[in-house]
């Protein structure tokens, strides 16, 4: 390893490159997409679309910079099983159609999938990831790392004792420290997903602690807050929150006999919120999940 002197750490800050999410409305909400050289966290309860976002990002990263991508492949570390291969293939087909990619190029060739079973394993993998990143051919370097989900690693293995909690938070800082130095060396965009816990009110212990703007943190008519607590919140650069709320919509059938003719339809409304980010104001955008992927709704 080359010797680094403090002088070399001085640099001109470069404008941050962004990787498109594959939808102009979502990109606008995020100021161009997921920032490189930064750690972005996606927080949501289950079935909100975290994995959908990640899969779509893994594909869109391969687009050339002229279309908002990075011309790069991605590394997908999954901790929840099984990996949604079928969904990836479905998205790939839609992706190829949308960008008129021929048969000679298969985007799923450039998504590397790796399973991680425990937090300690993830820390050990960092070394392998580092050599993997540096050995990749320059044509499609790995510029996106997804960890889906970080919460699954930490929510089962550790007891609620002071000793284990201390070990847990020191692991948070180790993992994010390693990740951030990788991110900086290879100019990678990192996305980690996190789960939520129910918000227990101000007296219910530390999860009443306010991080970011709480007022958006409603999902399924419950007040929630991101899992893994304060220590982890210090480890990420940006935090995005996906909410889903069931809504009953009354649809008229078009006939004159009102009342009976109306049908009640339940619809899930999903929104993506920016909770905190160094470069973005607090904001939110509605989105839908379709067969072809995740799309923002322009209103």
């Amino acid at each position: 390893m080359a010797l680094i002197s403090p002088e070399n750490l001085l640099r001109r800050p470069q404008p941050t490159q962004k990787c498109t999410l594959g939808c102009p409305v979502l990109d606008r909400c995020l100021g161009g997409g997921i920032p490189c050289n930064s750690m972005t966290e996606l927080v949501a309860e289950s079935a909100s679309g975290k994995t959908q976002f990640c899969l779509q990002l893994a594909l869109s990263a391969q687009l050339p910079p002229s279309r908002g991508g990075l011309s790069a492949s991605s590394l997908y570390l999954h901790t929840e099983f099984p990996f949604p291969f079928r969904r990836l293939h479905q998205l790939r087909r839609a992706f190829c159609d949308r960008h008129s990619i021929g048969r000679e190029f298969d985007p799923s060739d450039n998504v590397f999938v790796h399973a991680v079973h425990s937090a300690d394993q993830l820390l050990d993998e960092m070394r392998k990831i580092e050599s993997f990143l540096s050995e990749r051919k320059p044509r499609f370097p790995v510029r996106v790392i997804v960890i889906d989900s970080i919460a699954a690693l930490f929510r089962s293995e550790f007891d609620n004792t002071p000793f284990d909690l201390k070990r847990r938070s020191s692991l948070f800082f180790k993992i994010s420290g390693k990740l951030k130095s990788l991110v900086d060396r290879f100019n990678v965009a990192v996305v980690v997903t996190n789960q939520v816990v129910d918000f227990m009110g101000d007296n219910g212990g530390m999860n009443g602690l306010r991080i970011g703007n709480l007022k958006y943190l409603y999902s399924s008519e419950r007040r929630v807050c991101p899992a893994l607590g304060l220590a982890w919140a210090n480890c990420v650069n940006s935090r995005l929150f996906l909410s889903r709320n069931e809504e009953v919509i009354r649809e008229e059938n078009g006939s004159a006999n009102a009342g009976n003719g109306d049908t009640l339809r339940r619809q899930t409304r999903r929104r993506i919120h920016v909770l905190f980010a160094p470069h973005l104001p607090e904001s939110s955008t509605e989105f839908v999940i379709r067969r072809e992927g995740v799309f923002g709704v322009d209103r």
């Binding site: 680094i4 002197s5 403090p6 750490l9 640099r11 800050p13 420290g177 951030k180 130095s181 900086d184």
Partner: peptide
Amino acid sequence: LLESIYYFRICSYTEQMAVISYLDKF
């Protein structure tokens, strides 16, 4: 205004110690 911000990006605590010691010279 951006040109006049000297930016150091630090990736470990050793680098942090080194830069802070170097600041005197800088």
